[in-house]
Write a protein that binds this DNA or RNA. Sequence first.
DNA 1: TTTT
DNA 2: TTTT
Lengths: 142, 142, 142, 142
Amino acid sequence: MASVNKVILIGHLGKDPEVRHLEGGTTVANFTMATNEYYKDKQGTRVERTEWHNIAAWRGLAELAEKYLHKGQQVYVEGRIRTRQYQDKDNQTRYVTEIVAEEISLLGSRPGTGAATQPTTAAVAEEQVTFRQEPELDQLPF
Amino acid sequence: MASVNKVILIGHLGKDPEVRHLEGGTTVANFTMATNEYYKDKQGTRVERTEWHNIAAWRGLAELAEKYLHKGQQVYVEGRIRTRQYQDKDNQTRYVTEIVAEEISLLGSRPGTGAATQPTTAAVAEEQVTFRQEPELDQLPF
Amino acid sequence: MASVNKVILIGHLGKDPEVRHLEGGTTVANFTMATNEYYKDKQGTRVERTEWHNIAAWRGLAELAEKYLHKGQQVYVEGRIRTRQYQDKDNQTRYVTEIVAEEISLLGSRPGTGAATQPTTAAVAEEQVTFRQEPELDQLPF
Amino acid sequence: MASVNKVILIGHLGKDPEVRHLEGGTTVANFTMATNEYYKDKQGTRVERTEWHNIAAWRGLAELAEKYLHKGQQVYVEGRIRTRQYQDKDNQTRYVTEIVAEEISLLGSRPGTGAATQPTTAAVAEEQVTFRQEPELDQLPF
DNA sequence: TTTT
DNA sequence: TTTT
């Protein structure tokens, strides 16, 4: 049956991407990204809540993430939700949910003006500030 | 800083919603929803992978979910990702990620034809097949 | 500069797709799709408003649209907005806005049960109820 | 029938919002917003295409748009597509498609660094960089 | 751990 | 012109 599993996030990276090269030559980059919500508690005080998202970028996107993304940067990430199982050290089943990135765009960067805050992106050709994962590769079992 | 945390899912309910009435009168409905992806493995065989999403609907949406949603039904859910911490029985910190629903629409329902599979929706007034959570309430700390 | 232009529609086809084969061998399918909104007017009467969207599917998506889509069918369409200029018969500049489809999913179809209402899709292999346009081709100047 | 009509745009304003106060006291703000796509033409040359979107913000959103948005600013806009008919001076029916904004977020603003390009936002309270239209009002026939 |  |  047809289904849709789509996530759209805009937020800031909590740290530089961590890049690993798996056996077989596949590259994967992981980073965290914060989004914030605001609400009023029962006393009417404004409260901020930060949500941390685990992002996984594969193959071509991983290499671009390694090259152009860094801590503090504002990005747009489009992807899908994936929950993985693993066994912890006590052999118990644990779950971790992450967002598999399908598209990443750098926000707030203005070649020529934003240089101070985003030095490494200043040299990125304009068309490269949006990166997209090829669907075929994206469908592989990660 | 402005940020966006948006999820769009189309899939089928894995079970009827479970509804709880919290102290203070707040209602919450929980259900699971499946999305599927297909890919070819290294041998070129088609493989299906099912992703299960935990959905939480609050207040008005919870009551509508209780009334109109049931196992097997195809729905559109729009919401945001939320990861909650809790202590397990061994006093270890665990995490569970869920989608807080902001809008739910019934799909594929055809009163008069689909009656066999979706009996309870047949009587739903047309405009009610889309439910939306009021933003103010939606911002409360759940 | 990075930008995002994304449209997500769920609605019913107003007519069968019209398919044209352009010089050069490119195929394009056009169809219309309705979405509805409900509101209360000043007298408190419920009013329905229908919005008609012009959808354009290119190349591989066009061929799949021709094969599997038909009037009345409920679909999910993801794509981008494009406004084209043309000269009318009085040589005046006119504008038409359409959605260039990037992904189309058939909704409400249940191979084996929904046969009566959606005969032509009953035979579609499950994984094919979602169609995606290859990005490279999708970027060509249509 | 349930349907979905959703648009997500990230781009820059082409001009300051134009604000009108209608008879009856309703406020509406209109502005244009650019998104860009890049593709290679038949000769393999990189080509940029700019898409201009007409945005309409109503009531509370209009007032916030008037206050905080200005030419050149990068914004996130979520809304729905609406095509309006009107009669031109030759009494011919014309169509114009616009995006009715439901949520607007300011992107790339960094009070203290981006001041030169975004002076008026520096004083915006943090939680206000995202604006949302109340759904009830949003459902009125504009 | 981000950002404002 | 769809759907309910």
